[in-house]
């Protein structure tokens, strides 16, 4: 007979203690929009579920030192309604709001989207492009890691079994910075990305790109931070030459699989097109913020 325990600790330490002391598989619950589906389908059969939503501060968005701190279990709906965040990091917000349906947005969280470790998670390329970091709590205290170092493969993360994410930090913006996220799905809504592309840029007063981060989703086992894509943008005003280099670098970075949603060739092609389009949006937004 299998049994499932549920705990809703009120502090981070209590949560860590529960995770560390679990006899079998322990799962962290924030929004639950992946976990509950997996429980129902029998894909995961944990012995313990630790619901983090009662921990103070784990839900909510704070502006700190010119940047943002987003609680790990903050819902997509709250993120979408945060005007200041949407003004500074529109790409992160639009990516988060693409997850699921309106109902799912009421629960779905950044930590869940990241730790579910799907290669196609929508918020992840946007967070990587934005330079987001995750604050991970564990028995030895807290450590801060770039988001791109959290997921190690489909369904796998670098978190120890007694660790969980408490919050994300989005850094203070340089002037004329903006981000954008685009994804391709066959259907209009309620679908999983065939390819996702997040682009984050900073421009100088002349409109020349001085810094860039580009991340691609659903084209490899984990979301990719593609340095060659960034290099294609830096120093350019996004002319046709830069776009072609960006397109090529994006395609070169892809290591996708064939599945029902798209073939390898198709995903590679789409990655290039989406990188171009996302870059164009990010440049336009950054220029408008001067």
């Amino acid at each position: 007979m299998s049994s499932l325990s549920y705990a809703a600790p009120a502090t981070v330490d209590e949560a860590i203690g529960l995770l560390a002391g679990a006899s079998g598989l322990a799962k962290v619950l924030s929004g639950g929009t992946d976990l509950l589906v997996q429980l129902r389908s029998g894909r995961t059969r944990p012995a313990l579920i630790v619901d983090t939503k009662k921990i103070p501060g784990i839900i909510g968005i704070r502006e700190v030192d010119g940047g943002f701190v987003i609680g790990a279990a903050t819902s997509g709906a709250m993120i979408g309604e945060h005007a200041a965040l949407a003004a500074v990091y529109p790409g992160v917000v639009e990516a988060t709001n693409l997850i699921g349906s309106t109902q799912v947005q009421g629960r779905a969280s950044l930590a869940g989207n990241l730790c579910n470790a799907s290669p196609a998670a929508d918020s992840v390329p946007a967070m990587i492009a934005a330079g987001a970091t995750a604050v991970i709590a564990g028995p030895k205290g807290r450590r801060t890691v770039p988001v791109e170092q959290v997921v190690t493969g489909p369904g796998r993360t670098s978190l120890a079994r007694d660790e969980f994410i408490v919050e994300f930090h989005l850094p203070k913006r340089a002037p004329r910075s903006a981000d954008a996220y685009l994804r391709f799905i066959p259907r209009t809504e309620m679908d999983i990305a065939v390819v996702g592309a997040g682009v984050n840029v900073t421009l100088d007063a002349a409109g020349v790109c001085t810094a860039a981060r580009v991340s691609l989703g659903a084209v490899a086992p984990t979301a990719l931070l593609v340095a060659d894509c960034a290099a294609a943008l830096v120093g350019s005003k996004l002319d046709e030459h830069a776009l072609a280099k960006l397109d090529l670098a994006a395609r070169d970075a892809c290591k996708p699989i064939d599945d029902k949603r798209g073939t390898i060739d198709f995903r590679i092609k789409v990655a290039g097109v989406l990188a171009r389009r996302a870059a164009a949006i990010a440049f336009e937004r950054a220029a408008a913020r001067s």
Partner: peptide, 10 residues
Amino acid sequence: ADYHIPVNAD
């Protein structure tokens, strides 16, 4: 989720 029918937006 995987057996696709049109969503309203389609």
